[in-house]
Design a binder for these strands. Structure first.
Lengths: 140, 140
DNA sequence: ATAATTGCAAATTTTTTGCAGGTTC
DNA sequence: GAACCTGCAAAAAATTTGCAATTAT
C-alpha cells in the first residue's frame, strides 16, 4: 500500500483528503475512469465536486503520479505510475488487467524504434479480448 | 488506392460523396481526428456538417471499415482497417506513423494471453517518443 | 501567514439526436 | 420508390474556468 501523502508531496502537491482518496480508489481498482473515480470517492466524501476530480487528475498526470490509459470504445482510464506492463482489456465487461511486461517485447520495441531513429519514451500495449470470467457468461 | 465505393458497399453502406471523401482523407493522411477530417473534407465539400462526420465515423467503425486509435493526451484518431501494425506516436508533433508488426511480438502476445485464459481479438501497440523530424526542432 | 486547493455555478467544448429534404440503389 | 443519408438546429454530455471560502504547510 503506497504512502499517498508522501507520493503527493514528493510531486509538489498538497496531500488533501480528496487526492488521497482518489489515489487509493485507483490503486484498489487498478484502472478507473473519471466518472468511476467520482462515483466512488463521493461516497466517502459527499461534498466532492466532479470539477475537483478533473482538476486533480490533470494535475497528477502532469506531475507524473498518474498515467492516462486510453482505450478503444471507452472513456480513458487512469492508473498509478508503475513499471512497464501490458493491459488486457476485456471487450465484454470493460475491465483492464495488468500483465507484467516481458523483457523480450522490450528488446523488440527498442530495436524497432532505434532503426527508425525514433527516441522511445513510453510504451502502451493494449490487448483486447474476452477475459476468462466473461467467457462463461458469453457462452450461455 | 482503395476502391472506396466498393469497400462501402461490401460493408452495407451507401457510397456517398461525403463518405468517400472521408475515407480518402484518412487514407492519404494515415490517421486523423474527427476535427481534422472535418476541416479537410469541408474544403472539398463546403456544405458538410460535423454531425455527418460523427455519424459516419461511428457507422464505419461499427461496420469494420475504420478503427479507432486512442492516444494518450490527444483526441482519438481513426485509420482504415489494415494488417496488424505498431503506432509510433510523436509526442512533439502528434503525428502517428505505422510500423509493420513483427511476428515475434505476435507470438509473444499470443502465448502471454493463452496462459491467462484470455481470448485475444485485437492488439493495439503505441510507442511514444520523438520522431526524427522533431528531434531536429527540439535540439534548437 | 501564505499559497494552494476546494466546490460551486457558469461557460465552453464535444458529441448526440430528431427530423425535413435530398440522394443512392 | 424505398430505404438510407445529409445538414441543420437543438439537446445532451463532457470538460474547463473563475472565484470566494477553506485547508495544508
Amino acid at each position: 500500500m503506497t504512502d499517498y501523502a508522501a507520493l503527493l508531496k514528493e510531486s509538489g502537491l498538497k496531500a488533501t483528503f480528496q487526492r488521497m482518496n482518489i489515489l487509493e480508489s485507483i490503486e484498489r481498482q487498478g484502472h478507473m475512469s473519471i466518472d468511476a473515480i467520482y462515483d466512488k470517492v463521493v461516497k466517502i466524501h459527499p461534498s466532492l465536486s466532479l470539477a475537483t476530480v478533473y482538476k486533480n487528475i490533470i494535475l497528477m498526470v502532469e506531475q507524473g503520479v498518474l498515467v492516462e490509459v486510453p482505450i478503444t470504445g471507452q472513456k480513458a482510464k487512469y492508473e498509478l505510475v508503475k513499471d512497464d506492463h501490458i493491459h488486457l482489456v476485456c471487450t465484454e465487461c470493460g475491465e483492464v488487467e495488468d500483465k507484467p511486461h516481458d523483457s523480450r517485447a522490450d528488446a523488440l520495441f527498442n530495436s524497432m524504434t532505434k532503426h527508425e531513429n525514433f527516441v522511445l519514451s513510453k510504451q502502451q500495449i493494449n490487448l483486447y479480448g474476452v477475459c476468462s470470467h466473461c467467457q462463461v457468461k458469453v457462452a450461455s
